[in-house]
Write a protein that binds this DNA or RNA. Sequence first.
RNA 1: GUGGAUGUAGCUCAGUUUGGUUAGAGCGCUGGAUUGUGGUUCCAGAGGUCGCCGGUUCAAGCCCGGUCUUCCACCCCA
Length: 454
Amino acid sequence: MADKPSIPKGTRDFTPLEMARRNFIFDTVRKIFKTYGYLPIETPAMENLSSLMGKYGAEGDKLLFKILNSGDFKGKLSEEELVTIPAGKLGTMISEKGLRFDLTVPFARFVVQHRHEIVFPFKRYQIQPVWRADRPQRGRYREFYQCDVDVIGSNSLLNEYELVRIMDEVFSALRLKVVIKMNNRKVLAGISEVIGESERMMDITMAIDKLEKVGMEKVMLELEQRGLGKDSMQKLEPVLKMEGSNREKLEFLEDYLGPSTTGMEGLVEIRQLFGYMEPDTMEAEVEFDITLARGLNYYTGSIFEVKSEEVQIGSICGGGRYDDLTGIFGLDGVSGVGVSFGADRIYDVLEQLERFPGHGEMDTRVLFVNFGQQEVQYIFPVLGKLRNRGIASELYPDPAKMKKQMSYANSRNIPFVALVGEQEMQDGMVTLKEMETGNQERLTPEQLVERLSV
RNA sequence: GUGGAUGUAGCUCAGUUUGGUUAGAGCGCUGGAUUGUGGUUCCAGAGGUCGCCGGUUCAAGCCCGGUCUUCCACCCCA
């Protein structure tokens, strides 16, 4: 016997019910993206490996799915080379394409390639799957959908503000209670500068990112292991211990970051962004969180992350500003900012909270029972009338037993069943049964269309 | 990538401790009671190489090894 069929680790099939729920998420974000004037694009599932490598940090490169060259992938490699060259290096010799890891890097590539057809500032949205060779867990998949919105070609902080509004609008439309965390890479750079460890910004930010999770002591230990001097650590401590309201934190940093121009720049940006936000019009809490670092190393300014306040599941949305991303592809001086909604995690949250709305509008509204050839011929024009009016209607394909056809309607949650037998054909009528109440009424085809139009 | 759990009917799970004939339950499914009326009820039935491969044993769902899946922690992230 053949092996049981299966799909690759970390990938999933979606049933019609799951698709209805996924589409609810996609439709919600798409609708909101559009009302802010963003335009859709799509890019290929695979990119040239050279476009992807080195954009996500050393860890990121390991998580890239590489596609083996077609044909004679061994190429000019000798048997000996195949054995002696380290696996990591060999990978790039026999593979030149990879599955995209996110939508931001392909977008930057897209912008560079299409720069002459694009009107800047360019506002685009993109809803497509991405792939990461991570070890799967709950809320972590190897294939998952991101819903990205980005503005490229504008330095204005109004773009950041707009994205915060979009995040807020999306999550309130989904009826999810979230906190929007924000920070700024320039502030993080400033901190590193102030403590005299400019070179170690990534180490420092990644360590303090864990503050909430592992506590002060372990963070300090990790920093020590990463080679941070005692002196620098002492200078860093007050920042980590910083508490209070957004305003209080900013005031503290105003002093602390004094010596760093970059740090002060970041602070000005955060202040301005908060200035745009009138707290009373925002549903979600917006929190300035100094421990927010974000691993992707192309961010240069504002960074964002959204966490559910009701379900523990990592971040469900994240993003930030990137000043140099298009530069890598040969177009300098174009800054962009964007956020990415993690559709699959949002799904898991909604699922766990049982907060998916009931579905209906696209589900079948009426099922015609099949009594045989003659009856079917009579039904065709009636079906046509209903469908022309946008009423989803089905005819049971086999002249099966009533019980079977009724059960089909029942388990599909079809609210109405139409019966056309000899009697109805003679009178030019249709018997309509409302499944929930069991009530039946005899209607002309025209009346039927009216009755189901509501 | 490192460490730890998990896998029995379509689904949710018993059974594994102490190896012993034909592996169970609930839900679902099929048929009937009801040959033009579903969702309730009653009756009957089908459905399993116990994830896969190998080993120990007279005998393995149960013990041992490997492997895959899912899940958990780390790492990192949507």
